[in-house]
Design a protein around this nucleic acid. Sequence first.
DNA 1: AATCACCGTGAACGCGCGTTTACAATTCTA
DNA 2: TAGAATTGTAAACGCGCGTTCACGGTGATT
Lengths: 348, 348
Amino acid sequence: MKSEDIARLAGVSRSTVSRVINNYKNVPEETRKKVMEVIERYHFHPNNSARVLAGKKTDTIGLFIVSIAERTNENHIYRNNYFSPFVDAVIDRANANGIYVLVNSIYTVKDYEKIKQAFVERRIDAGIIVGTEKEIDVIADVAAMGYPFSVIDYSSEKILQRIKKGRVAVINCTDDEGIRKVIEYLISLGHRDIGILSGRMNTYSGRVRYEAYREVLDEYGFSPMEEWVLKGEFIKKTAAQEVLKLVNHGKLPTALVCCNDDMALSAIEVLQNSRLNIPEDISITGFDDIMPASLVKPALTTVRVPLYSMAQKAVDEVLRMIGATSGNINIFNLETELVVRDSCAGPH
Amino acid sequence: MKSEDIARLAGVSRSTVSRVINNYKNVPEETRKKVMEVIERYHFHPNNSARVLAGKKTDTIGLFIVSIAERTNENHIYRNNYFSPFVDAVIDRANANGIYVLVNSIYTVKDYEKIKQAFVERRIDAGIIVGTEKEIDVIADVAAMGYPFSVIDYSSEKILQRIKKGRVAVINCTDDEGIRKVIEYLISLGHRDIGILSGRMNTYSGRVRYEAYREVLDEYGFSPMEEWVLKGEFIKKTAAQEVLKLVNHGKLPTALVCCNDDMALSAIEVLQNSRLNIPEDISITGFDDIMPASLVKPALTTVRVPLYSMAQKAVDEVLRMIGATSGNINIFNLETELVVRDSCAGPH
DNA sequence: AATCACCGTGAACGCGCGTTTACAATTCTA
DNA sequence: TAGAATTGTAAACGCGCGTTCACGGTGATT
């Protein structure tokens, strides 16, 4: 069933069918109705590839999750699925607008090219890239070619420095404000000895959260001991090792700010195994507010990242930019929120 | 940059370029090499739409998550993301084979058509459908049109009854065996009064798990009290209501088998809030082994669903079927596994 | 009645590539 | 050496649809 068949059945030319489908104004109501009836009756949908080839949009956006994680073949492993809710939200939002989503997991440097390919070869209308800042060259290329996209967890400075013009939305949350809120909360409880379990310094949020920690403590005139600055790399395993080292060899801080929830949960486990009580012996805070955060005992006090809103914003901006012929670089920092639960108390 | 440009740059005709790209044998090694060099140098990739239009595969599969959940606009909500790891795994496996994945969330009956559309209009090579059995009509249509696909969480009987021929893979896990294992484990601990918190009866796994519960208890000659059969609908909220009702008005069983982990976690919370100790006062088991299961206190004894393997199988089968010109209906039931943790003990 | 402006429509071309066909160039057979 | 068999290549057509352009028809204006 192609448009030619519809034309014949409706007694018009193929051009007219095309005009009806694409909502041209210069087709009389009667003709339009007649054609529409045939289209409905035969459930006709124009072939997408042909439309695209003839210059139309694909109504498809690409979602690229650039991950540092290893691909694994293990049967059942808890992958770092931090971004899963983000993926879900993007798909929902796009589908609600009649847009398809082509999802790509990207693991290796070699595959960065796939981002560009998706634009050139598959003609996606726009992209949403959750990255590690390492694929910035490809991103810059894409922008230079005039394709619109949203990037998540990228330094806006780096983007602005690298990309001069194009249709780009940089979407982050106020990581620094989140850390500020959590530390000021701890200080309000009476804490002064505040440690940190930091994330990956080669990610944007990893750096921002760490730097905010130093800045806020500085501002209040507290300087943490060197051994309270733990490098957790955002990973449970590494975090556990660092915390264990601290427990065995160091003087404990009265509070430990963790740069994500995964590490906070890991820290809690290690500390509890070492016969320490939380929050009595040491207060723990997380970041992200992933699902298990509210389920563990004690429930984790953390900073909520508006991942769902960020996904919606990413889609909305991308759809807006598809419509615009030109544009510039817009930056959005969505608000983080302190979620107080049970993992913090005043220092002993 | 199109194939014509490559042809000119390589000093051959466009047909020769096409033959090189599509690995025809009747092109001399020297010519092939020359063309390949130009292709490499200019990072040429044939336009996908044009290829498809000319009759090639799209190298794209569709992933359809048909959900009963409501679409929501709330800022930050913990959606039922049970299938998120499945989505991740499908994308990984497909990408590893150079296949793109078009993901669709389907919420309303009206949108069931989108499954068929994706095949007809977007020319996806195959589909993977996680369904609710309600869209069986559309599925049957797709099979009748000769398109290959995998379905997850579908009764193979229903499929076989409805679909006579086509390239179809039905992929499930041994839900019944899982329930058997968990109940026999409880019995081995000394339990006889075993209740159930059931799931949705209009889903395949919901029915199978419930029926297995009745069957196994029957087999051992234990008949549960009517009030121990709780209808949880797979949902935390409903589960909490049911458990609360039981606590307030009924005689408690010594063990409660929950048909998914979400409900088990909810049950634990309600019971603990009612000053009951787990597992001392009542044993709880779950199903699925979602991430939080191992993190809560007490850690949840549950049945592990090999979601990751199921996703891989779904992709592998679909890729195999794309290659095959004809085929029939294959059924796979992947093994579930009992994971013993801390939420069960002998009855008091 | 003749001219003009306007509107609806169909023919024709192009999108980029796969594939068939026909033809030229080469090698092999008698 | 003439003819046949084989090989490499280019030209031409088709995939299904969007869009331009030119044509014919209508009603209004002079």
